[in-house]
Design a protein around this nucleic acid. Sequence first.
DNA 1: AATGAATGAGGGTTCATTCAT
DNA 2: AATGAATGAACCCTCATTCAT
Lengths: 227, 227, 227, 227
Amino acid sequence: MPSSPHIQATPHTRQRRKQARPQELLDAALHMFVERGFASTRMEEVAALAGVSKGTLYLYYPSKEELLKAVIRERLSNEIEAGALEVERHVGTHAELLRDVLANWWLRVYDNPASGVFKLIIAEVRGFPEIAEYYFREVVEPGSKLIGGVLQRGIAAGEFRPVNVDATVQTLVLPMVMLCLLKHSLGACAPVTSLVEPGDFMNHHVALVLGGLLAAPAKVAKGKSKP
Amino acid sequence: MPSSPHIQATPHTRQRRKQARPQELLDAALHMFVERGFASTRMEEVAALAGVSKGTLYLYYPSKEELLKAVIRERLSNEIEAGALEVERHVGTHAELLRDVLANWWLRVYDNPASGVFKLIIAEVRGFPEIAEYYFREVVEPGSKLIGGVLQRGIAAGEFRPVNVDATVQTLVLPMVMLCLLKHSLGACAPVTSLVEPGDFMNHHVALVLGGLLAAPAKVAKGKSKP
Amino acid sequence: MPSSPHIQATPHTRQRRKQARPQELLDAALHMFVERGFASTRMEEVAALAGVSKGTLYLYYPSKEELLKAVIRERLSNEIEAGALEVERHVGTHAELLRDVLANWWLRVYDNPASGVFKLIIAEVRGFPEIAEYYFREVVEPGSKLIGGVLQRGIAAGEFRPVNVDATVQTLVLPMVMLCLLKHSLGACAPVTSLVEPGDFMNHHVALVLGGLLAAPAKVAKGKSKP
Amino acid sequence: MPSSPHIQATPHTRQRRKQARPQELLDAALHMFVERGFASTRMEEVAALAGVSKGTLYLYYPSKEELLKAVIRERLSNEIEAGALEVERHVGTHAELLRDVLANWWLRVYDNPASGVFKLIIAEVRGFPEIAEYYFREVVEPGSKLIGGVLQRGIAAGEFRPVNVDATVQTLVLPMVMLCLLKHSLGACAPVTSLVEPGDFMNHHVALVLGGLLAAPAKVAKGKSKP
DNA sequence: AATGAATGAGGGTTCATTCAT
DNA sequence: AATGAATGAACCCTCATTCAT
């Protein structure tokens, strides 16, 4: 940020570009890596998509590997930040909270280039164990704790049945991640007509699992009580 | 074929190898492609793992691409065959049938190189749309119909609630596929300690979803009076 | 271009090379292809002879085949251009014209890398039918028309006997082409001592054929009474 | 030749093949080498064309190079033998002798696989200087002497003008060799329509050169004597 | 800072040659 | 003698990376 008091909201083209470059390069790299895979993407393709020359790419990232790591880190750290804010500001039942947390994550991620990061990680992580470690520590564990915490408190409150928390987290979350993967693999090739529309699926999925999760009384509300 | 009772099960070295080669090569290729990715695997590595020279590989598969396709086709067609036999031979409630079908699939696939095929498909399919089409037509659709059929009949029998069948199939199946992916990506890097053990997860997962799936009466036994 | 009188004929190193490269590469390729044959020449050898690395070659020509085609096209189109200018600017008898056209062609071609193109074409054309077609359309036919035209006009003027024009063209031209071939094959191996020196041969060859070509009167001077 | 008195004109199949093999292999090799070039021909193609397996080829010729040399030597030695018989048995004028020698050579060679050997030599000889030396010593020199001798004697007899013998040999012979080359290169690709038919050409070619060669009186016979 | 020409190590593929059967 | 499976050296081509401009 320039020290001058005149906040230069949109600096002149050259300046603006220079500032925006890193992000544009990361965006281009994410797009190409997800579409063609890391090894099959040429640095020149990334550069071309970002509208710069091959050499320029190397001014910002010293190697292809570092570019990959930067791409993943940048997207994930954004996610982490956004996810952390979610839980506190909610009121209502734990079921509502769960629904909201998952739905918001979905809204934020699925129709967003960020969804591609999952494919990147699944596909490339074995070549970069440091990314595995980072991803696990910064995303999987905090995320599990977030969802798991809601479940735990719901159980304690008698709202949920006393399920295995970790397993339930996976039942809830893995299909969502899987849909992100499908979007960027099969979904990009075949007209995956027979699959449910992702938005619809989410609603049904959470409702279905909540059906198995809620303590019995919840069902009574639906007027299905017998005799 | 010799009519003598001494079945010459193992013809002499050269012959025996010739027969066994294709499978050995496919196994080696699957292993390497899953571990390192298609593009990053060198043909020489595949050959070395199979214990032959680079040239020999080309006696059996005319290119790296054809090797990939052969790997995927062979594993999938095996799966398809095995899967098709599953449903008929079961008796019991639809819930039991569902549990059995999923559990058997799991036993057959998870602790087996076949589980790697999912990673291959997710990671590489965009470069080979024909594989996408094949996978969709021969695996996704038949598989969905198999599980979906059980659900449908369970609903018709009043055993299951009238859920969205396709969405429920995904809630049931996607986490299983996702665990296969994780096994061959994150799971192969970090000691994924905080994740539930896959066998345990399966039991809990199916039970949980069945909980949301079964018509109310089943739950009545657990019925608690509402405060 | 600078208006200063100091014409910067040779821009600085990088630039200058960039401009000169294609020709240098074509020269090197012609040399190697003629010396070792197309299939036996390694791209690296061409590059080395041109003083660049293997990769650089591919910046200018996308494949070995395209390099071959470019080599042939470049040399031939130069020849064609030069040949077209030949006929108009001559005066004198048709015999003199014929002698001059052939002698000039010979001077231009024989002691020149261009002579190697004939060997390239004879040796490689079956693998590249498009080159055959190009060579025929752009070189053989126009060349035949050029020489044939002179003959035709000489015949019409009563200077030449009424010979078969096409056949005579071949009697005149084929030995010249053949000498080019020999220079780059046998001539490059054995000290072809017993062959006539090519310059001498040309003079004698044209004189000899003209001897058979000219209408009788020219010979009368030598006329000897029949016994 | 078997010492047994029963001349076994056509030994039984197996035997016959075994005896005929070397020639069949050489024929196949010549065909392929001429059509595709030495370097681009695969040993397996030669074997296939001869109807044997790759391994068998190596039972007869220890390497590809030796096969090439055998191909060339065999064809050339046949030619040499045939050519040597030509001159003695002729009577008539030297012009007639010349015409006959060239015409017979032409009949024996042009419509015969042997014509391909010239292409082989032009194309490949630089890689095999020994072949050059052999070809020069056994073919070029004897052949030149043969034709040159006829010319010399014709000159001595006053039938021919006192031309440069070596140069005239080339004017006579090179177009013939060149037509053999064209047959196997351009002629095999493009429909070489504008070229004279080779048989016609030969007649005209020899007549034309003889026209320049014969001492004047010969022309008188054609009734062109000027008053 | 930006460019893109140049490099050269690397990998897919071919094929002459070998050798067990 | 004949086969054809196996080998591995060789070669075309690609592309991450460097560096002069």
